[in-house]
Design a protein around this nucleic acid. Sequence first.
RNA 1: GGACGAUUAGCUCAGCUGGUUAGAGUACUUGCUUGACAUGCAAGGGGUCGGCGGUUCGAUUCCGUCAUCGUCCA
Length: 892
Amino acid sequence: MSDVKQTGLSKTYDPKEVEEKWYQEWMDKGYFRGPIDVEGETFSVVMPPPNVTGSLHLGHALDNTLQDILVRWKRMAGYKVLWIPGTDHAGIATQAKVEEALAKEGQSKYDLGREAFLERVWDWKHQYGHRITSQLKKLGTSCDWSRERFTMDEGCSKAVQEVFIQLFEKDLIYRGNRIINWCPKCQTTISDIEVEHQEKGGNLWHIRYPVAEGKGEVVVATTRPETMLGDTAVAVHPDDERYQHLIGQNVIIPIIDKTIPVIADEYVDPSFGTGVVKITPAHDPNDFEMGLRHHLPQVNVMTKEAIMNEHAGPYEGMDRYSCRKKLVSDLEDKGYLAKIDEHVHAVGQCYRCDTVVEPMVSPQWFVKMKPLAEPAMEVVHEGRLNFVPSRFTKVYLGWLENIRDWCISRQLWWGHRIPVWYCDDCDYIYCGLSENVPDHCPKCGATTFTQDPDVLDTWFSSALWPFSTLGWPEETEELKKYYPTSVLVTGRDIIFFWVARMVFMGLEFQKDVPFRDVFIHGLILDGQGRKMSKSLGNGVDPIEVIEQYGADTLRFMLVTGNTPGNDIRFHLERLEGTRNFVNKIWNASRFALMHLHDYKGHQPWGELTLADRWILSRYNSVVGAVTKALENYDIGEGARLLYDFLWNEFCDWYIELVKPRLYGKDDTVTDAVASRQTAQKVLRHVLSGTLQLLHPYMPFLTEEIWQQLPHHGDTIMLSSWPEVDPNHVDYTAEEEMALLMELIRSARNLRAEMNVPPGKKAELILLTDEEKAQKILTEGKSYIASLATASEVSIRSIKTEKPEGAVTAIVQRVEIYLPLKDLIDIEKEIERLQKELAVTEKELQRLQGKLSNQSFVSKAPVEVVEKEREKAEEGQKKKKALEERIGALKSL
RNA sequence: GGACGAUUAGCUCAGCUGGUUAGAGUACUUGCUUGACAUGCAAGGGGUCGGCGGUUCGAUUCCGUCAUCGUCCA
C-alpha cells in the first residue's frame, strides 16, 4: 500500500485569497522595512513616483515588477534592502483634474482663489492619492511603505526650497526675460522637453517685403505669416551674393507698413526658401537668439491666450489662426503674396493637452545647465553611472551635450512655490526660507514684500527624489547608509525628464551619483504595436488582469520573452499561457505534498539514483544561470530558464521518473523505504529551491507552496537565495540521462508511428556494443520501461540475432527494436528507414565536406574540429546500421 | 536631416562575446479521462533567420549598404 495522502489542495490554483493573505502577513511582520541598525552590504532603490491622482497602468506594473524582482532577490541574497515608494504631485495633471471637477460645479479656480483652490487639491489628493499605492500593493511590491513619500510632503518641500536657495546663491538659478514655450490652454510655460514635435503638413508662404529706400523687394518665406506683425528684421546669410546690396538697408512689413532693417547672420540657411528670413525675436527661439546678437527689439504680438494683441494692428483680437487666414488673404489682395508652397514641418505641441505651443518672451526662472551638465556627463565616462542596456548612454549624453537652460517656473498654483520675494518698492529680490523674509528691504527700507506667484516645474522636485526621500537636507541615517542607491528602474521615455536631472542634482548636492545603474525598459504596447492611450481606448487595466489571473501571472507574463530596453506587445493570450504555468507549478507541488506528508528531513541523501543525480545537477545549473541572469538584469532570461526547467525537466521527466519510487512500486530496488526517502529528499530540495529562485517573479504562489512544504524559517521572502553546490554538479549523470531521454523519446515515437495503443505495454529490445551505453541502459532500464510503456526491456549485444518483425530506430549507437510480430508492413518500414537514412546521409555529407576542407581543419579550434569528427563518426555508424537493417528487411 | 531600435515558424518573441540538425510560447495535425495537472500528457508538421555585398575555414550572430516599420532628436 502506498503512502499517498490527499493534500486537500484544489486542482486549480486560486490566487485571489492567497495573494491578499500573504501581502497582509508580510506587511504585519514588517518584512518590507529597510533595516537601519544592521550591518551589511546594502541594496537600495527609489521607486519612480507615479502621479498621485493617477491609476495604475501596465507601464507602472512592469516598472514595479522589475524593481520588486531585483529587490526580493537581493533581500534573499542577504543584502540590507531599502525600497522607498512614493507619489508625485504632478503639477499640471493634478491641477487640471481638480479644475475639471470644479468646472462640473460651474466654477473656475479663479472663483475660489488660490488658497481655497489649493485646499481643494489637497482634499482631492487625500481622497484619491491612495488609489495607486493600494494598486501597487495588489501587484505584490515589497517596498517599505513605512517610508512612503510624496513630492509635496514637508520633507520633500524642504529639500526643494533648500536646493533652490543654494542654486540661487551659486548663480545657477536666475530670472530672465527669455523666450519660453507657452501653452495657451494650460496657461503656463513648459520646458523644452515638454514640447512634443509632430510633423504636420503646412504651407510655406512667400511674402514680398518692399525695400524702403528706392525700389525693389525681398521675398521672405515663412510657415507662420501671422508672426510677421512682430518682425523686427529680415536676415540673409552674410555670404549670400544675391543679397549683398541689401544688407544694412531697410524693408517694409506689408499691411502694417513698419520699417525694419536687413541684417546678415550666419544662422540663415541660404538654401531654405528664398534665402531671406523674417526675424521675430518674440515668437521664435532662433530668432530670439539672433535678436540678441543684433540688438533687435522684441515685439510680442499675442496675449497669453494666443489672441493677437494691440501690436497686431488691424488683427487685434483675432486668434492666431484666424489672423493667419485673414492676413494671408489681405496679402494676396494687395499683391504681397508671391507664392504658396506646400511644406511639412514640425509643430511643437503641449505634451499635456496637444495645444500648439507658442514661443513667447516672458520673465521666468531658469537653471543654468552648462555647469551642471558637465559633471553629469563625466560620471558616465568614468563608469560611475551605467546604463542597461548601454545604448541608452548615447541618448543621455546626446541630450546633455546640447542642453539649454531649464525653465523651471510654472504659472500654476499646485506645486512648490518659488521661494523668492520681491520688494514692493524697489528691485530688491529676496531668496530664502519664508520665515526669514526681512522686515525691511535692505536696499530701500520698504516693509512689504510680495512672493513670486509661480511654482516650480514638477520635475524639479522629482530630480531630488533619490536624496529627498532619504531625509535630506537632514543628515539622516538613511542617507548615510543608502545613498547612492543601487539602481534606478525606469522607462526609456523619461531619460531626459528625470534620469538626467536626478544625476546632476545628486552630483551637485550629494557629490555622488544618485544611483550606480540605470535599468531602462521599454514601453508596453497593445497587440498591434500601438502605444496604449486613453483616446485609443486600447489600454489594459492591470488590476482587472490581477483579478482575473492573479498578480503572479501578470508579473511573470510582463517580464517573459523580452530583452532589456525593448518594447513589449501585450497579448491577452500570453496571459493564459502564464496562468497555465502557474497552475503547473501548483500541481507539481500538490504532487510533491502528497508524497511528503511523512517527510522526516532525512539527514543523509542516501543512495542517489541516476535520475536524482541528474535533476540535482540540472537544478544546480539553473541556480547558477538564474543568478547570473539577474546579475545582468536579464530578467526575462531568468524567467525563461525557470519555466523550462520546471516544466520540461522537473515535471515532465523527474516527477515521472520518481513516481514508482514514491508509490513504492519500484521493484528494482532492494530497499524500497530508503529509496523512497531519498526521492522525497531530492524532490523537496529541488522543488523548494526552485520556488526560491522563482519567488522574486511570483511572490505569492511561491510563498503559499513553500509554507506547506517542510521548511525552516517564517517566510520564503527571507529565506537564503540558493547557491551552486559543486557536489551536485554531475555532468556524467546529465550525459547519461540525455541518452536515456533520447531513447525513450525515440521508443515513444516508434509506438506512435505504429499506432500502438497508449496503454498497451510492448516489449523493447535494445542492442549496443558500447560498454558505456550498456551500463547506462542497465541502470536506466526501469526508466525506459515506465516512460516508454514497455512490458520488458532487454539489452543485448549487436552481434546477437536481430529481432524479427520489429520496427527500428537508432539513437547514439543504440539500436531500438519494437517487435510487433505480424503487425508490421515490411514495405512501409523500409520506406520509413530509408527516409531516416536520407536525413542521416545528408547530415553526414555536410560534416564530411567540412572535415575535408583543409582550411577548416587547420584553422578552426581543435575542440570544434574534434566535435565535428565525433559527429561524423556517429553518423557513419548510424548510416551503416540503417543500411544493414534495410538490407535485412529486403532479404526477407 | 541625424541617431537608435526592429525585421527569425501562421502569430508573439528568445538566440550573450561568430561553430547547435536555428529554439520557446501560441496556433495547427494525430493519439490519449496514464492515481499532480485536459489551465494536462505523448508524438508530429512548419523557417533559403528582410535584400545585396564584404570579413572569415565557417555568419542568424561581425562590418557596409539598401528596403520596410517604429522611436527619439533637430
